[in-house]
Design a protein around this nucleic acid. Structure first.
Lengths: 336, 336
DNA sequence: CCCACCGATTGAATTGTTTCAATCCGCTCG
DNA sequence: CGAGCGGATTGAAACAATTCAATCGGTGGG
């Protein structure tokens, strides 16, 4: 494959001039430039990103590590991040940790080797150990969908406690007195915060924590939701409402209930979380807590760019907390 | 950031030895190795991928360029490809062309600069011009979800003509005599093949092409489906069935009909395509043509690896065609 | 007459790793 | 005693770009 030297020889100039044609065209005489461009075209020359990275010290790629790209919520986050990155001339490398701290560590290692210019990460490791280790490499990173534990990190999150309160508050004000919470991996902050918000809503209505019946789940997908739905049906007494930690679970629960002939919302009301596009198209359109996913992705990328561009340590870490919004649809209503 | 030279100095050995410790540990005496590893740990050394790429001539990254990651079908393709790639120790860089030939060209250029070891691509450019230009770089690529136009490319596809026949054959045998086809960008092969299959099914039942009423659409997402649904409602006479080019469109159409009080399947039957996870969870569970997306992604990646690993030109290009499968659910039934 | 400066171009240094031929050391065999 | 050998280690070349100080001939001012 042709290199810059071949182009220089072909055009009868030095490699430095070829480099200038590519990077600072205005600094080269028009006819020299034309000659070089012709040589580039003729040889099919493409500059090597690895060589320029080597010199620059870091790549022009931003990494995004999410829990699961099978969840449309994260696809939206990625969309927002990608748009911001491309505006800055950067590529985005999207990876799934699958909620596994080990996979997360592996990917972070990969990012360090790649010398990515920064990492957007939805942490899968509750201890924060992975990121603590990663910080050593002095590659900037921004937490996504997670509040910053310390002040030495930027973060963009959505107020999950408030989201939980919105969801369960809505159910309680519709008359429900016992609510199931289909949760997810207990070490995810999002899950815990949403539960806490749910408990707060119950407390405000004078109900104790026993009014929230937890149905644990180790994954956050539709299949896990079907599973949880089956377990929900077996509960005695059966709660009159379900709050699901995300929409995928809610869709799975809905399918389960539907298959068992349980009517939604007459017999059981359902509220999901994320308001993914498919929530509105569900068997019974799903009440859900909407998160500004695209905005979150974009803001996270912008914070990262700010931190990465700031060579002199003038950067001040910031935490942005966005607000969720309840979208009421047919799946929630008064009990019986 | 510490480099291999710093490690060598710290451990009192040469850079070559450090390289050996990392890449061929058995070739270094245990205590030397221990000393080097200690130095690596102490300095927090991480080898630079760009430097090793520079030497190797190509990167350890496989690119995947799909039409739209917002479509769960492509997420599944990506999953399959990623699994195969990781087994081979490669990373995957996933990008969306958004069905735009310009974006496709831009990304292909990026991949050439990155010297990726190969590209999996769902072509957005019907002319094939982008890939023809790309072939010049001698970077192997495999067509995904598209039959190869020539024999100098590997390809993995699903028989879309057969898929269209399955879908519309099912509708016809249920008694429908007029079927709407909610299509997509006309320059996508998938769309055209599915239409052709639909026409074949109609012909087999003695119906002419006028029995297929096309409702064009320039995108393939839920919003475009809602749009198409609205147009469907305005048709006189109104077809009794709709075949949608993919499930996102079908879900959108379903929402539209639902909102207008049209009953599915009693008033209009719907058949989608892809059988994404959300099809089964829709307002009316969606009949759909299932594609083996994960398998397709995996096979494509494996073909690519085979081609990339093959230094001497012994590689023979292959085209794999997978078979789709009709999954009948509530959204399709006999008319009136 | 000399020097500073002009814009364009050059040549060399630099980046971090891998690889390979050369070297070194201790050992054995002739 | 010296040659030969094998394993461990070294040192330098190579990779492909960027960048920067040096250089070119020509010009105008002091």
């Amino acid at each position: 494959m042709a290199g810059i030297k071949d182009v220089a020889r072909q055009a009868g100039v030095s490699v430095g001039t070829v480099s200038n044609v590519i990077n600072r065209p205005e600094a080269v005489l028009p006819d020299t430039r034309a000659r070089v461009l012709a040589a580039i075209e003729e040889l099919g020359y493409v500059r090597s990103e690895s060589a320029r990275q080597l010199r620059a010290g870091r790549s022009r790629i931003m990494a995004l590590l999410v829990l699961d790209m099978g969840n449309p919520f994260f696809v939206d986050v990625a969309r927002g991040a990608e748009r911001a990155a491309r505006e800055a001339g950067l590529g985005v490398m999207v990876c799934n940790s699958g909620q596994s701290p080990e996979e997360e560590a592996e990917y972070l290692g990969l990012f360090a080797e790649q010398r990515v210019c920064g990492v957007l990460v939805t942490p899968a490791d509750a201890t924060g150990g992975n990121l603590e280790a990663f910080a050593r490499h002095r590659i900037p990173y921004v937490l996504v969908d997670r509040v910053a534990a310390t002040t030495d990190t930027c973060a963009v999150s959505v107020d999950d406690v408030r989201g939980g309160t919105l969801a369960v508050g809505h159910l309680v004000s519709a008359g429900h007195r016992s609510v199931a919470y289909v949760s997810g991996p207990g070490d995810l902050h999002q899950i815990r915060d949403r539960r806490q918000g749910a408990l707060a809503a119950l407390a405000e209505a004078g109900l104790g924590p026993e009014a929230l019946v937890e149905i644990p789940s180790d994954r956050l997908d539709v299949a896990a939701g079907r599973d949880a739905g089956a377990r929900l049906l077996g509960l005695v007494p059966r709660p009159t409402a379900v709050f699901c930690a995300n929409d995928l679970l809610a869709l799975g629960v809905l399918q389960s209930l539907y298959a068992a002939g349980v009517r939604v919302p007459q017999d059981i009301a359902i509220v999901g979380y994320d308001d993914i596009e498919f929530a509105a198209a569900a068997a019974v359109p799903l009440t859900s807590v909407r998160q500004p996913a695209v905005v979150m992705g974009r803001m996270a990328a912008e914070l990262l760019l700010e931190e990465a561009d700031d060579a002199d340590g003038g950067h001040r870490h910031r935490s942005v907390v966005l607000q969720p919004e309840l979208v009421v649809r047919a799946s929630s209503a008064a009990p019986r």
